[in-house]
Write a protein that binds this DNA or RNA. Structure first.
Length: 431
RNA sequence: UCCUCGGUAGCUCAAUUGGCAGAGCGCUCGGCUGUUAACCGAAUGGUUGUAGGUUCGAGUCCUACCCGGGGAGCCA
């Protein structure tokens, strides 16, 4: 007898099999009981009638939601069952019967309550499909970079200096001196790119911003890439290919999950047809003003502005050539227009915000020193980074993509907290 | 940090002008042989976020604080 997972069930119709999982729900009608069994790969309906197996009927009747069970039975096609297939249960081994009612109900509950019970919430409803899509996104990122000849590497989480200033860093005690949780792996990736050529990493980064929005986490996972000899244009091409690859992979691997989430895959696919539109910061300002936004030159885009840009193009859109004053020190200024940087943000459609921030990096010592001074950053802390410009510096570019935002967009879910197993937010550190 | 809405049973919410604190769901019990968040019946369930104040009387009005939702700013 074969032990199978629920996602394999269709291939075992007519066969006797074993399933290991949890009771997702129980419905009964007199002398017949329907057990919805879940196992992480899906949910299948089991059926038990009193007349066939009286003692089994008693066992099943006593089970409550989330009881862990091993069930043996025969799979049969049945249009009356959700999914068109059900398990005629012949034997149940109860691993554990919950001592208390399962707190997560199948009806609507408030976000605060659900987040307090996140460790249990993830078992239910759309949480499982979302987390399975998350798995595909991570794998797609790794496959893409591997296929493109990139080397996976790592950046430290504990750092002594910040990338973009010190206001948004989590501080930790490091043997009596101050250390910070990394808000980006970028600077270290630049060093690694000078060693290996094309590198990427996927890792957690930390921002101590007090943002309380549907797009922010204080700890989130970012995939960052850094490529030697890539210019700004190469960089954007790499980014759009990555995004398209991720979406195509999810559509291919997680059709069922997207269907569960009622996400229109044709629409998604349309959104990632290449190339993505590119507009300059100046053009974006014009578009936004024409749409009635009050925005001054030099302002960054807020959520409403990003939503407008998303609506305008109905695709991810690159906004490039930002004023240098509003961007960090490591971005290379455009040779033809030094007040602008060779940087681009990729704005997601449907109001999901900025997916990617990327730029060509400063590659000469003089320019880098000047920009550190301009941003009033201490050179000493960046000596090792300056070294990269002293020893065989080359043009290079890189970017970082927020994984959870990408997942939220692909899934079409309203809030980023569901796009990560355990969200860390400004007022949430538990569970 | 700011704006805004909210906090009443385990959950989701009612409660008229300040006048007996209620319903649905869940759990428990009973009924029902094809349920689809099953349904029907019964029972259970309360320090109304905390502290103070006004009042004959406060879930309701006032003050402070705590907690949560949504948003802004900042960001990916």
């Amino acid at each position: 007898m074969t032990t199978i997972t629920i996602e394999e069930a269709a291939r075992f119709i007519g066969k006797e099999i074993i399933l290991r999982g949890w009771v997702y729900n129980k419905r009964s009608s007199g002398k017949i009981i329907f057990l919805q069994i879940r196992d992480g790969t899906g949910v299948v309906q089991g059926v038990i009638t009193q007349s066939d197996t009286p003692s089994l009927f008693v066992t099943a009747n006593n089970l409550s939601r989330e009881a862990s069970v091993v069930v043996k039975g025969t799979l049969q096609a049945d249009n009356r069952a959700p999914g068109g297939c059900e398990l005629k249960i012949e034997q149940i081994q109860v691993i554990q019967q919950p001592s208390e009612p399962f707190p997560i109900e199948l009806k609507r509950q408030s976000p605060g309550f659900l987040m307090d019970h996140r460790h249990l919430w993830i078992r239910t409803g759309r949480q499982v499909p979302i987390l399975r899509i998350r798995d595909s996104v991570f794998r797609a990122v790794r496959d893409f970079f591997h296929e493109q000849g990139f080397i996976a590497t790592e950046a430290p989480i504990l750092t002594g200096a910040s990338v973009e200033g010190t206001t948004t860093l989590f501080e930790v005690d490091y043997y009596g001196t101050r250390a910070y949780l990394a808000q980006s792996g970028q600077l270290y990736l630049e060093a690694t790119a000078m060693a290996l050529g094309k590198v990427y990493w996927i890792g957690p980064v930390f921002r101590a911003e007090k943002s309380k929005t549907r797009k922010h986490l204080t700890e989130f996972w970012m995939a960052e890439a850094e490529t030697a000899f890539y210019d700004h244009g190469d960089n954007m091409r790499l980014q759009e290919e990555l995004v398209a690859y991720i979406v195509e992979t999810v559509i291919e691997e997680r059709k069922q999950e997207l269907d569960y989430l009622k996400r229109d895959t044709a629409f998604l696919r349309e959104q990632v047809s290449l190339p993505f539109p590119r507009i300059t910061y100046d053009q974006a300002i014009t578009i936004l003003r024409d749409s009635g936004h009050k925005i001054s030159f030099g302002d960054d885009f807020g959520a409403p502005q990003e939503a407008t840009l998303g609506d305008q193009f109905r695709k991810p859109v690159f906004v490039e050539y930002f004023p240098a004053s509003m961007k960090p020190f490591y971005m290379k200024h455009a040779p033809e227009k030094p007040s602008r940087v060779l940087a681009a943000d990729l704005i997601a459609p449907e109001g999901y915000g900025e997916l990617i921030g990327g730029s060509q990096r400063v590659d000469t010592l003089n320019e880098l020193e000047r920009q550190l001074d301009e941003k009033k950053l201490p050179r000493e802390a960046y000596e090792w980074y300056l070294d990269l410009r002293r020893y065989g510096s080359v043009p290079h570019s890189g970017f970082g993509i927020g994984i959870a935002r990408t997942i939220a967009w692909i899934c079409g879910i309203p809030h980023i907290r569901e796009a990560i197993p355990f969200a860390r937010q400004v007022n949430r550190l538990y569970p």
